[in-house]
C-alpha cells in the first residue's frame, strides 16, 4: 500500500527513522498521505528544489493503487 511505500522510502533516507510517521486521510476522490519526519531530516525527504519529494510523488502516481484514487503526498513540519 502507498502509505507503507512512503514510510519505507522516508525511513531509508533520514537520520532518524524512528521519527518518521505517515498519516492517511481518506477523501472522496483522493487519499492524502501526511508525512512527518524529524525537523533535521526534512531536507532529506524534500531535496534540492524538491527533487526527492517530486520523485516520491511520481512513483506514488504510478503505483497500482493510484489507478482507483488519486494519492497526494504532503510533507508536514
Amino acid at each position: 500500500m502507498e502509505r507503507d511505500l512512503v514510510e519505507y522510502i522516508a525511513k531509508s533516507l533520514v537520520d532518524d527513522p524512528a521519527s518518521v510517521s505517515v498519516a492517511v486521510v481518506e477523501g472522496d476522490k483522493s487519499t492524502i498521505l501526511e508525512l512527518r519526519v524529524a525537523a533535521e531530516d526534512i531536507g532529506k525527504v524534500i531535496g534540492k528544489h524538491g527533487r526527492i519529494a517530486k520523485a516520491m510523488r511520481t512513483i506514488l502516481s504510478a503505483s497500482s493503487g493510484a489507478s482507483d484514487k488519486r494519492v497526494v503526498l504532503e510533507i508536514l513540519d
Binding site: L13, K44, I52, I59
Partner: peptide, 24 residues
C-alpha cells in the same frame, strides 16, 4: 511498461531515489 513510465518518467524517479539512498 508502467515501471518505466511515459518517456522514462517513473524509471527516472526511482533512479533519483536509488541515488539518494546510495549517497546515504
Amino acid at each position: 511498461s508502467i515501471i518505466i513510465g511515459k518517456k522514462g518518467k517513473n524509471l527516472d524517479a526511482l533512479q533519483v531515489l536509488a541515488n539518494v539512498y546510495s549517497g546515504r
